[in-house]
Design a binder for these strands. Sequence first.
RNA 1: GGAGCCGUAGUGUAGCGGUUUAACAUGUCGGCCUGUCACGCCGAAGAUCGCGGGUUCAAAUCCCGUCGGCUCCGCCA
Length: 606
Amino acid sequence: MDLVVESISGLHRTHCCGELGTIDTGKEVTLMGWVHRRRDHGGLIFIDLRDRSGLVQVVCDPEAGTAFKKAEEVRNEYVVAVRGNVRLRPEGTANPRLATGDIEVEARELRILNPAKTPPFYIEDDIAVDEALRLRYRYLDLRRPEMQDIMHLRYRTTRAIRDFLDGRGFWEIETPMLTRSTPEGARDFLVPSRLRPGEFFALPQSPQLFKQILMVAGIERYFQIVRCFRDEDLRADRQPEFTQLDMEMSFIQREDILNLVEELMAYVFRETLGVEIDLPLPRLTYKEAITRYGTDKPDLRFGLEIFDVSDVVGGCGFKVFADAVAKGGVVRGLCVPGGAGFSRRELDELTQQAVTSGAKGLAWMALAAGEIRSPIAKFFTGEGLQELVARAGGREGELLLFVADNETVAASVLGSLRLELGRRLHLYDPEQLAFTWVTDFPLLEYSPEEKRYVAVHHPFTMPMEEDWPLLDIEPLKVRALAYDLVLNGVELGGGSIRIHRRDIQEKMFSLLGFSPEEAQEKFGFLLEAFEYGTPPHGGIAFGLDRMIMLMARRDTIRDCIAFPKTQSGTCLMTAAPSTVAPEQLLELHLKTTARPAGKQYSTGKA
RNA sequence: GGAGCCGUAGUGUAGCGGUUUAACAUGUCGGCCUGUCACGCCGAAGAUCGCGGGUUCAAAUCCCGUCGGCUCCGCCA
């Protein structure tokens, strides 16, 4: 029998598959969806019909006539309409693993609305399939329930954000996608102007300048859920286009923003996940975070804090430690529970990781029963050893790890070891949500490449008032009114109180090495706006994709974006980017110096 | 720009110099089957081992290059 594709006409969907239950017994329903699976018993055919809401079993009996005939033709992922009656399943055939497992739909009419090719992978959760294939066939990947759940979670999250902010008097305002390239920050994506030969727009890295100008404009409370673009290399949690929740408020101070954001987070997590977040959220200063956790985005799901023994090893017999302290560095370490039992190989791996992240070496002491095993124990007196162990807080069965270096290196090495050990030793509950604020970031850091100071946050960040006197003396010691929100070791977002005073802004530019002319050239429109009555203001921006990633417990934001790019910045479904017709380039007054050679985006198979 | 891992029927894997006509599972196709739900049973088809070059009597297997995917460093105010 030739496959007959039929019209939807005359049929109206009455229910969704997943919402049917025993309460619907006896009703005539019309369902539309995809054939999830077909079980053909020769004289009886079962079809699991799937739509966005779930699955329901459809039974086709030979007595149903043409419906049975058509059920024989149907294959996986065919799009069909079924009209029939809901009935309780016969005694003993209910399926408790299926939400609709107590009932089934007895097909009276079956229409094949569209056939389908056999998909390259299963349309179900937990598939083990090459991600490239999923991206090539993203529309099939997105049919899988777990992906639909994430897309739905994302929608529910943005809806909750809008609800909350609307209730707090925020207005959502759109800002341009075609804007001006600005210095500082990431590499811009450029868009050539056809009407202005040789000139370019840039896609926004964030709406930063526009939202500040909206404050000058008297909007007072602005937010936007907005696409941002940064032409930098990709990571599991970084895409060239990503979505920010961007906010800005006038007439507020830091506390106002932190409090508001905490309530926002509590609201969103309650509404979407049903999770209660304890407020207020913990706060760490940047300095505390670096000292205790070795990073400015600490994972507070577990302790394993860094200790400092610099003052007790100053004059010790172990030259590596003593020299580090003498040169103004530090000796810090970790006290690893259960680590005394680590094998030689495990210690080598940790050492390797320490070296990879910048350490010159890793010293260790295993606090075994009644003895201390350590290659460096011999450099210490018995008393010195006791003091060291005591200061590290080491107890029997534990392993002490030491890094001696300058403060920056020691922090980053121990920070990465801490994370690795946390993972290895299962020191935390993966289900836990540990938020923390990190505040008081430095205003500036020195860039050896550019041989000048650069803004840690951005050039419009307000220095803390009590540090203003340091601006001229020790700029690197100036703290900023900048803050990050961190969740489980992931930077969710960051913001600052902005400079609204001209004199401070000028000081900032001069510290960054901009002459007044350069500042005018680069940010003139903003500076001009600031001359017309700028309210004190500040704001914050969140990476929505990362937030969804953590809420959905995924390892990459690619799973939280409907159509993401690969690590090399391409789209495997559309094969973007691509070459364009020579006429297009001509219109844009462009000539390329390169020609992409033998580009191939298929997965290698036809 | 750099480091590492991966690439074998549609899919997931095995094979890692020679008893291989490249194996297994699953999917696909055909037949049988009236209570299955990862249905079952029988049968069949399906792979230029990502691509190019080299070493060798002999390469899926070793080497080099290249393309693609992933992780990380640099980069990401």
